[in-house]
Design a protein around this nucleic acid. Structure first.
Length: 401
DNA sequence: AAGCAGAGGTAAGGTCTC
DNA sequence: CCAAGAGACCTTACCTCT
């Protein structure tokens, strides 16, 4: 989907069409003030709120990053994952809106259902992206897939008012690269024979799976393009990147990928993490940290219960003020989805980590998930005394913090 | 009795993606 | 000076069991 989070907001506020808009800002809830009548009498129709009333990036204070930028904002060099403060320097006049997850999820479900109605073999790749295997869809081969791609684009536009970009190719690896060629609202077909002409000139970073680190390392080895990667000796690549990654890199450079489009999968872990408004000290801000910690455990437990999972590996994640990260985990004898059990186990993990530096982030994770039979859970059942304590912790007895 | 290989689990850190 | 949140997967190390 093209600039998905921003495009969803533009549906609500069409007067922002064509303007630089960024979505982001971390924990801030939807800005209801925008919807209030200036005189306090009821709500305004979002479609007619004057552009001048929208909050600007230059007025933003906080630690968030940009989630999505409209194409107009991208002209200024603003993009995903950029710090808000940096973005504000590049484009101070950009309008900034918080993420409305419920709305995003609604449109995510809508566009995915539109696709599966046409082509049922679809793999989720997050909220705004999917893989589709339309090998066996009637008409899927016409014009190399262009006809079906157009049909899907039209269907999504009719159902949601949103545009997307589609890449069609013999496998997922090439289709993903193809989808970048004609953004936004484009279609690109890449055939096997196009490898040298269309793929090899690209930077290695365009391969899905080669990120900043591998990109840097390849550059240091004198390899910039996918073509240059393709002519390397696989053994040599394996020497530098490990057996599996090296072999994969070589295959990817040759456009080879036989991974299937997987329509169903089970989650492996669930987590909650939060970056604080300001860096907190384990001793001085103990009470505040303890509340946050307990809340994270509570929220993970709710997520598990709501989705029907339990896990036996409980983990924590800390990020210090110098941005270094530490994780600790502990595996229980039996899976749990109980907030107090998670809180207690995570508390034990916390004792194994240095707490001399200030913290900027704290996270709680539950892994090794299973779909539990109701009666096999440890610490499950009616709300226990321990659960009640996790929900309303006594700061004097809560372990650590 | 000692040593070793392989499997499988746990733990810690890192990389990558949307 | 700036750097979110959630999740998957990989590597390495270490341990236990067979």
């Amino acid at each position: 989907m093209d600039a998905f989070f921003a495009s969803v907001e533009l549906l609500r506020y069409p007067q922002l069409q064509g303007l630089p808009v960024v979505i982001g800002g971390g924990r801030r809830k939807a800005d209801d003030a925008l919807l209030q009548q200036p005189d306090g009498s009821g709500l305004r129709d979002p479609r007619f709120i004057p552009v001048a009333d929208f909050p600007r990036l230059k007025d933003y204070v906080g630690r968030g990053v940009i989630t999505t930028a409209t194409y107009a904002a991208r002209q200024f060099g603003v993009g995903s994952a950029m710090g808000m403060m940096k973005a504000a320097r590049l484009c101070p006049q950009a309008i900034v809106l918080p993420v409305d997850f419920d709305e995003v999820r609604k449109y995510s479900r809508l566009f995915k259902r539109t696709i599966t109605d046409i082509a049922p073999v679809m793999q989720d790749r997050g909220v705004d992206e999917v893989y589709i295997d339309f090998t066996d869809v009637p008409g899927g081969q016409r014009e190399g897939g262009r006809v079906l791609a157009r049909l899907i684009q039209k269907g999504i536009l009719d159902a949601t008012g949103l545009t997307c970009s589609i890449g069609v190719a013999p496998n997922r690896l090439l289709a993903k690269m193809a989808s970048e060629f004609n953004k936004p609202n484009g279609i690109s077909i890449v055939y096997e024979e196009d490898l040298q002409a269309k793929i090899w000139p690209l930077n290695v970073r365009k391969i899905n799976g080669i990120g900043p680190k591998a990109g840097e390392k390849l550059a240091a080895l004198g390899i910039q393009t996918i073509g240059e990667l393709a002519v390397q000796d696989p053994q040599w690549l394996m020497g530098h990147f490990g057996k599996s990654t090296g072999a994969w890199m070589h295959r990817a450079a040759w456009g080879r990928d036989d991974s299937p489009v997987v329509t169903e999968s089970e989650p492996v872990s669930m987590s909650r993490e939060t970056t604080f408004e300001r860096d907190l000290h384990a001793v001085r801000d103990k009470a505040e940290l303890s509340l946050i910690f307990t809340d994270l455990c509570q929220r993970v437990a709710e997520d598990l219960q709501r989705k029907g999972y339990a896990g036996k590996t409980i983990g924590i994640k800390l990020r210090y003020d110098d941005f270094k990260t530490a994780t600790r985990d502990h595996t229980l004898p039996a899976p749990t989805q109980d907030a107090a059990t998670i809180r207690h186990t995570a508390g034990l993990c916390l004792k194994r980590v240095p707490l001399d530096k200030r913290l900027r982030l704290l996270g709680v994770r539950v892994g090794a998930l299973v779909r539990p039979s109701e009666h096999l859970l440890s610490g499950d059942g009616p709300v226990s005394a321990a659960t009640r304590q996790a929900r309303h912790p006594d700061p004097h007895t809560a372990p650590l913090f």
